[in-house]
Design a protein around this nucleic acid. Structure first.
Lengths: 116, 116
DNA sequence: TAGCTAGTTAGCAATATAGCTGACAGGAAA
DNA sequence: TTTCCTGTCAGCTATATTGCTAACTAGCTA
């Protein structure tokens, strides 16, 4: 039984997939377009996209004969929050921006209160 | 040829290893201690530790017959920065706490100023 | 010395992953 | 209809990963 975070980190462990994510961050696009920069066969890219999809990082629509891919940020956020939860380890003081992590709730409150 | 980030994300993709990281965040400890909470055989834990070590997430010393493990935060930071670079995708506004990413430079300055 | 504790190394099995090719499907265009 | 474009699916190979056990090493302790 694999957790979501397992699949997210696993998906991000491949440089091809990270490049795909980077491309999708600039906007929705097609499989062919995603495959273009790579020397890999196109079905190979399809497989990578499917991995991203199973991790919840990508969602897809249908438009004529294309399957446009869109980046879903939530899992990226989850990954960042996990790694960020150790932020205090590389920061010397606790009362930096870095509090964002120790409690997201607290960070939220602060954000709301201060409007920053 | 594997990049560092490949190894870091790959290492974090396993729940056992994430639990080891979580434990190490509370302080340096031994392999036996790390293995205790798991039902896995001890050499299996050794292997997981080695994966974390190759990713640069763990460094080890020697003390009598133990090999104390310590968490190295830098790769965690790198992973957080990668995922965080897409932070704008899940935030509606740019001028939140979210500046943390753009402000690594700023954090650096703070660190330097504070004499670290 | 002998034995205990902590840990690594070697080797095996099962499964997953990343790449490929070849064949297929659905929609647009000729 | 035929053809092309955009993909998917099935199946193969090679390699990596995760788990195990058995056997070993290194250092402490009796």
């Amino acid at each position: 039984m694999k957790t979501n975070l397992d699949r997210v980190f696993s998906a991000l462990a491949d440089p091809t997939r990270r490049r795909i994510v980077a491309r999708l961050a600039r906007g929705e696009t097609t499989v062919m377009d995603l495959a273009a920069p790579f020397k890999l066969a196109q079905p190979t890219i399809s497989k990578h996209i499917k991995v991203l999809e199973r991790a919840g990082l990508v969602s897809r629509g249908r438009a004529a004969q294309t399957r446009p891919c869109r980046l879903e940020p939530a899992p990226l956020r989850a990954a960042m929050e996990w790694t960020g939860s150790y932020r205090r380890l590389w920061e010397d003081s606790f009362d930096r921006l870095g509090v964002f992590l120790d409690s997201n709730a607290q960070a939220q409150k602060k954000e709301n209160r201060s409007g920053r």
